[in-house]
Write a protein that binds this DNA or RNA. Structure first.
Length: 580
DNA sequence: ATAGGGTTAG
């Protein structure tokens, strides 16, 4: 049977698989050779040229008592990696587990746990965990790592941590699973701390970081927006030759762009000898975040013209986002209409934003109506945001109605609607919205800004006096106020929602977290140093104006990364060209 | 009866 073995290994398309299947059926080997059968099913289930349905049909045609653990493993592996991982769990729990034999082995559990991880499903993860213990597989490092990953993705980080600390042996994949789990669960400082612990460990039994480690920790740095940490990881990787991998370079491009150093990102992209789809997507998205839409479009065209790469959903999103942030409306529409794949919710969101910001609200509404699936709340919120910019009360009321019917009770909708009324000087409607907010107990997301000075992150809330130097900060704000008023600054209080007098409104604005962060940056860094601030919400109109004036009055570059993009203030102007 | 499983960028 050696010849069949080698035939199996040389299958390179579905027709080969079918011919071999036919041969096994005709010769009776399909039931006689369990090994050939299960390997054929597995190949068909997981190979890129395979066909999951065909593989499952082969599996189902195997008589139940004859099916070995390997047959089950092949089917569960294919389902776990496919579009519907839940079916892998159904097959395992409902069909395989009640039988015995065959008994599940480490491989069976590995594939089932992967399915649970892909589903972020905590309940099956726990069940599989206890089964793993009962089957005596606790000492299997790879299985424990798979389980740790499933807990981290569930997410149940305490359990992930517990597995990590109870493992007698951990290899590098184990560390990487926890580092990336922390980064993905919104705990990038912990991810970074774990990386530091590993990279400076004196324990000779601890593994050396590899390219996977670098990729995971760079994603944490990107989330943190910490150029200092990101660049330190880059140095670490370069010294050890870990930056040779294209995936590491892609992660570097992403990290530098998200830490404000988009030119360094572009330099790494250009210097990279190998460029994958992800490389292009990373740099196009990076340029988009910085409002450099023309360059984003240029690279997108280059990708289409001079590579074999086919743009995917992320590529289109990145280039549309670039057009939106740069006000390139017609170019963005052209990209949208030329899409070779079905647009998803985010693509629609980007186009609605693109049209809405440009004042083309009717067309934006038309795009939503043309969708073949139901728009979600975020999409309606995007349109509501456009109504605020354009001051369109009619549409804003209709959209808000839709949002409330959909059960949305976030503060964003109320604030946007109220802003539309305020822009039209309809103060009684503003008051009515405010009353509704009170009676519905709407929770506001507090604005938080952060700035890093000499490796220490300082966090500010609106109006907060927690910082040890708060007196100096507020004194600095007073001085800033005086200097920029001399340049013609008039506070824009139209978006302040509180039921307070004009002077108090000015004070509320004046204490926005991003202003506190910038003021602290001014007093704690030498003249000429750029000030970097990160905000958890979008920057407000008044803070935007103030930042522009500070950049002129104090001759400082101020870079603000908000929820959606970067603003770079210099000499009284912003890189967004006030289009945002 | 052979082997096969884990982490990792946009």
């Amino acid at each position: 049977m050696a010849h069949l073995d080698s035939l199996l290994q040389r299958c390179s398309n579905l027709s080969h698989i079918k011919q071999l299947h036919a041969h096994l059926l005709v010769t009776g080997l399909f039931s006689l050779s369990a090994s050939l059968r299960s390997r054929l099913v597995e190949l068909c289930a997981v190979a890129s040229f395979g066909d999951l349905h065909y593989a499952l049909a082969m599996f189902r045609s195997t008589p139940r008592p004859a099916a070995t653990t390997n047959d089950w493993n092949a089917a569960i592996r294919g389902l776990a990696a496919g579009p519907d991982p839940a079916s892998a769990l159904l097959l395992f729990f409902r069909e395989m587990l009640p039988l015995s034999p065959p008994r599940p082995d480490a491989l069976t559990l590995s594939f089932a746990i992967r399915a649970a991880a892909r589903l972020s499903a905590i309940h099956p993860t726990r069940q599989l965990h206890s089964l793993l213990l009962r089957l005596g597989l606790a000492a299997d490092v790879r299985l424990a790592t798979t389980l740790l990953d499933a807990y981290a993705k569930a997410p149940d980080l305490p359990s992930a941590h517990q597995i990590f600390s109870e493992m007698p042996l951990r290899d590098i994949a184990t560390w990487n699973a926890l580092i990336s789990g922390l980064a993905l669960s919104d705990r990038p400082p912990d991810a970074l701390a774990l990386f530091r612990r590993l990279s400076s460990s004196p324990d000779p039994f601890d593994p050396a970081p590899n390219d996977g480690t670098i990729i995971a920790v760079l994603s944490a740095c990107a989330q943190l927006g910490s150029l200092r940490d990101g660049a330190a990881v880059h140095d670490y990787a370069r010294v050890r030759g870990l930056d040779a991998d294209v995936r590491v370079r892609n992660a570097l491009v992403d990290m530098y762009a998200k830490c404000g150093a988009v030119d360094r990102a572009a330099a790494i992209f250009r210097a990279s000898p190998e460029k994958t789809l992800v490389s292009y997507n990373a740099i196009i998205m990076g340029l988009a975040l910085h409002g450099r839409g023309a360059e984003a479009l240029h690279l997108f065209d280059e990708m289409l013209r001079s590579t074999e790469l086919e743009p995917d959903a992320v590529s289109y999103l990145a280039v549309l986002c670039g057009c939106t942030h740069a006000g390139l409306v017609d170019e963005g529409l052209r990209v949208f209409r030329s899409m070779r794949i079905r647009p998803n919710m985010k693509h629609y969101g980007s186009v609605v934003d693109l049209l809405g910001r440009a004042g083309r609200l009717t067309e934006a509404y038309g795009v939503i109506e043309s969708m073949t699936f139901a728009p979600d709340m975020v999409l309606w919120q995007t349109l509501l945001g456009a109504c605020r910019i354009q001051g369109d009360v009619d549409l804003a009321e209709r959209v808000s109605q839709k949002l409330f019917e959909m059960g949305s009770n976030g503060c964003g909708n109320y604030v946007l609607l109220s802003n539309v009324y305020a822009a039209n000087r309809r103060w009684s409607d503003v008051g009515r919205v405010r009353e509704t907010m009170k009676s519905n107990d709407v929770k506001k997301i507090p604005g938080i800004s952060m700035t890093e000075i000499e490796g220490v992150v300082h966090t500010f809330y609106n109006g907060d006096k927690e910082h040890e130097r708060w007196r100096e900060i507020y004194r600095s704000l007073d001085e800033i106020g005086a200097r920029i008023k001399a340049l013609g600054y008039v506070p824009d209080t139209s978006n302040v929602l509180h039921d307070i007098g004009e002077e108090d409104k000015e004070n509320a604005l004046y204490q926005h977290s991003e202003k506190l962060a910038v003021a602290f940056g001014l007093i704690s860094t030498p003249v000429g140093t750029p000030i970097q601030v990160m905000k958890n919400l979008r920057i407000c109109g008044d803070c935007h104006t103030v930042a522009k004036l500070i950049s002129r009055a104090y001759d400082r570059v101020i870079v603000v990364r908000d929820l959606a993009r970067f603003h770079r203030f210099e000499g009284g102007d912003c890189s967004c060209g006030d289009y945002w």
